[in-house]
């Protein structure tokens, strides 16, 4: 499969470290937010607003998504579960390959801007 898109490791704009701490904030009725802090110098790096979250166990994450859904087709539900898990592992592999293949020159915001 050919690689498309961009990928980069989050890094601190102050000290260039790639070691990060994530603070995940969950509030009922609100989107979950992740505040990223540099693990080396303690600077604030970024905030992510999550629409979906996938853990190291993608199928359980899929179940979390299904918690708010209704479905009327066993076949479609089964396919969706398989596709979800496959896409997570495939996406993870691609993201790592893209980072390995390219120079990380852009700020993450610039990459995101280009995808809008």
């Amino acid at each position: 499969m050919s690689l498309c898109g961009s990928s980069k490791r989050e890094h601190c704009m102050k000290c260039e470290s790639v070691a990060m701490l994530n603070y995940v904030m969950v509030k009922p009725g609100c989107d979950t937010e992740v505040f990223v802090e540099c693990a080396t110098c303690g600077a604030f790096v970024a905030r992510y607003t999550l629409t979906t979250y996938t853990s190291e166990d993608p199928y359980r994450s899929y179940l979390r998504l299904m918690r708010k859904k209704r479905s009327d087709s066993g076949a479609a539900t089964r396919q969706a579960g398989q596709k979800f898990v496959t896409e997570v592992w495939e996406g993870y592999r691609q993201a790592k390959d893209l980072v390995a293949d390219s120079e990380e020159v852009d700020h993450l915001e610039e990459i995101l801007d280009r995808t809008e």
């Binding site: 359980r60 179940l63 979390r64 998504l65 299904m66 918690r67 708010k68 859904k69 209704r70 479905s71 539900t77």
Partner: peptide, 11 residues
């Protein structure tokens, strides 16, 4: 929904 209930319980 039966789907959501099962998702919660299985998880």
């Amino acid at each position: 929904s039966n789907t959501a209930t099962t998702a919660i319980m299985v998880a």
